[in-house]
């Protein structure tokens, strides 16, 4: 039986800043809660190809699993949690910049 496709977002690092970004319907955001949620596998593959072609904007685009919490994407793995919020050793990086 084919594996059930779980919701995903396209994420990457920004070429110039190097920080974590997420693909939205119209561009890129630094906030996971603004990411475009992909629930269809073919659509997700296509959006990943589109993202990967933006070589002068992003580095290392990939599909990351998310869970929907009240319709808002949230990480399902702790690595993606840290990517979304920044280092946990003290308040700096994304958790401060995004407020």
């Amino acid at each position: 039986m084919p594996k059930t496709f779980t919701p995903k977002v396209v994420t990457a690092n920004h070429l110039l800043k190097g920080d974590v970004i997420y693909q939205t319907a119209t561009g890129w955001s630094r906030r996971l809660d603004e990411a475009e949620v992909l629930t269809d596998e073919a659509d997700a593959d296509l959006r990943l190809i589109e993202a990967s072609q933006q070589v002068d904007v992003v580095v290392g685009a990939y599909l990351a699993d998310i869970a929907l919490e009240n319709g808002i994407p949230a990480p399902t793995h702790f690595r993606e949690d840290f990517r979304a919020t920044g280092p946990s050793n003290y308040a700096h990086g994304k958790q401060v910049e995004l407020g």
């Binding site: 190097g18 920080d19 070589v55 002068d56 690595r79 990517r83 920044g86 994304k94």
Partner: peptide
């Protein structure tokens, strides 16, 4: 690289030779 004349695959070995990594957040 910034001008888009080098791909990441081409640039990565060059930046690593100069100590520049791309890590989790930056």
């Amino acid at each position: 690289r910034i001008a888009g004349n080098l791909t990441e695959d081409e640039f990565k070995p060059l930046r690593l030779m100069n100590g520049l990594y791309l890590q989790l957040h930056a």
